[in-house]
């Protein structure tokens, strides 16, 4: 199976080489979408051996992932793994995330921080995520232990059906909505998330959750 990793990166020069190097041996191709970075992210990713697509201006993580997914599908990818650029995820877990797709047990595999024991995340973030998960489950009708986890794997069929229109962070909720809408089989697998100083600095701020809700509402009324 041809496995492509799609990594959206915005100003991640500090970590991108490391992440690409960790991932590249584990998949057939690493696609980094440089989302209008002002630093060397794109050049470093290319040097590390990734295929780099460049957004001329920053459009957000959802937009960048969709660009990478369209590219991967064009190149004949059979499985697409989305992975974060900030080094939060453990590359060696890719095989575990991909396995259910290869076995044909699911169309979409979602990484979950809460299925395993380690919960080394800041308390405020933990509470907010739990709350958001409960609301999202009610709203999408899925039963998930984690949402807004960027580590996932999509089968080709799923990647063709799911079209990310949310440019920003709300794309994570949108993907879940579309799993429901297209009646795709989904499965959660435990993944480790390392909350390093770097990822805390670069990652989602708690205040962004309001922005996500706003984006979801706006896209509803403007359809």
């Amino acid at each position: 199976m041809k496995v492509y990793a799609v990594i959206a990166a915005y100003n991640e020069a500090e970590m991108i080489s490391l992440v690409v190097n960790e991932v590249k041996g584990l998949v057939d191709e690493v696609v980094v979408v440089d989302d209008g970075s002002r630093d060397q992210t794109g050049e470093l990713a290319a040097q590390a051996g990734a295929t780099v697509l460049r957004h001329l201006i920053n459009r957000g993580q959802g937009a960048a992932l969709q660009t990478g997914i369209v590219w991967a599908l064009d190149q004949g990818a059979e499985i697409i793994v989305t992975f974060d650029a900030d080094g939060q995820f453990a590359a060696e877990e890719i095989s575990g995330v991909v396995a259910p797709l290869i076995a044909g047990r699911a169309d979409v595999v979602l990484g979950s921080r809460f299925l395993n024991q380690s919960r080394e995340m800041p308390a405020g973030k933990f509470l907010l995520l739990r709350l958001a998960t409960v609301i999202t489950n009610l709203y999408t009708g899925l039963k998930l232990s984690d949402i807004h986890n960027g580590f996932r794997a999509l089968s080709r069929v799923a990647a063709e059906k799911i079209k990310i229109r949310q440019d920003g962070m709300a794309h994570a909720s949108e993907i879940l909505e579309q799993i429901r809408k297209h009646k795709l089989n989904y499965l959660e697998v435990p993944v480790t998330v390392k909350y390093t100083e770097y990822s805390k600095r670069k990652g989602q701020k708690i205040s962004n959750s309001l922005r996500i809700v706003w984006d979801l509402i706006i896209s509803r009324i403007s359809q």
Binding site: V33, G36, T51, V52, L53, R54, H55, L56, I57, R59, A63, Q66, T67, V70, W71, D74
Partner: peptide
Amino acid sequence: IIRDRALKGK
């Protein structure tokens, strides 16, 4: 537009 350029550029 940005996506199209990124894909065509590549």
